[in-house]
Write a protein that binds this DNA or RNA. Structure first.
Length: 292
DNA sequence: CATGCCCCCTGCACGC
DNA sequence: TGCGTGCAGGGGGCAT
């Protein structure tokens, strides 16, 4: 499910709904995720206050008052459900048609005020880990991450250096979390479509002869930023509607290429048709007419 | 080093 | 209705 915008939506929701609350207990019904949960997870969490909820790439980082960090990764089907009072929140899950099977609530956390949090993950590609104080910055999972795409570190100069000499496709390069953190299959397709760049184009062709950034590279960065910003904003609006107990107006962001095989290209002035192809074993959606 | 392939696991849509 | 097939937003390991 979740790429940067969805994880960011979950982050913001958790911050507002459980930030500052104290964990009173919980239960684990299935600890065998992609990596098993730490054996004594619940004992280590009991009595702790949620100090912060941050995000790095697709990782959720829950800061506790012991200075430990709970790392949550949602994999493909991970979802977080929060119940406070009579309201149930399920942020960032854009496949609204998918049922939530309670049998896949692998972890439940209870808070002193009666709120409850569930981690649900049918395919169990996600994981939950608890990292000792001060160890997060040395964690190999964090160290392997490239810059945040919405930060200034993700600059034309950076990306030019990253792409220089690389024959690999733009699609593969952008999916790599070491290049930039948080993009997944959907938003890579969307960003390349907005930038009118072919997913098969070699990454190095966006680098000038002197190793300098090119206009295409600037276009790509702008496209990545805009599609992510719009999706984050849509997630924010969805949360606010849920908070006011308003019905879901739309199922979230409307994708312009993803899952639109055979439909017309929506780029201005383009009369092309969206195609699907396989790259690295995953679907790529693109318009060969305007993406070069 | 880079790339493609397979695997982890479950649910769902589709065709017969 | 029921069953088989292929596919899914992530990521890691392995062979080539």
């Amino acid at each position: 499910m979740p790429e940067l915008p969805e994880v960011e939506t979950v982050r913001g929701t958790l911050e507002r709904l459980v930030g500052g609350k104290v964990i009173s207990g919980g239960s684990v019904s299935q600890s065998e995720l992609r990596c098993p949960m730490p054996a004594n997870l619940l004992q280590r969490l009991a009595g702790q206050r949620i100090q912060s909820v941050k995000r790095r790439g697709k990782f959720l980082l829950v800061g506790l008052d012991s200075r430990e960090t709970l790392i949550v990764h949602l994999g493909m089907t991970g979802r977080i459900i929060v119940q406070t009072g009579t309201t149930t929140f399920e942020p960032g899950f854009y496949d609204r048609g998918a049922r939530r099977f309670v049998s896949h609530d692998h972890l439940e956390l209870r808070f002193k005020d009666g709120s409850r949090l569930f981690y649900n993950d049918s395919r169990r590609f996600g994981f939950i880990d608890l990292v000792r104080p001060g160890r997060l910055r040395f964690d190999p999972r964090m160290r392997a991450l490239g810059p945040e795409p919405l930060s200034n570190d993700f600059s034309p100069t950076y990306l030019a250096a990253c792409f220089a000499g690389r024959k690999t496709s733009l699609k593969a390069a952008l999916l790599c979390q070491e290049t930039v953190a948080g993009l997944g299959n959907i938003y890579v397709c969307e960003a390349l479509h907005r930038a009118r760049l072919s997913p098969r184009r070699a990454a190095r062709t966006l680098v000038g002869g002197n190793g300098a950034p090119t206009m295409r590279l600037d276009r790509l960065i702008a496209a990545i930023r805009s599609v992510l910003q719009e999706a984050v904003a849509a997630g924010e609006q969805a949360f606010l509607r849920a908070e006011r107990c308003e019905p879901e107006a739309s199922p979230g962001v409307r994708f312009r290429v993803y899952d639109r095989e055979g439909e017309p290209c929506l780029n201005a002035g383009c009369k092309g048709t969206i195609e699907r192809s396989i790259q690295g074993g995953r679907s790529t959606f693109f318009c060969r007419r305007c993406q070069r």
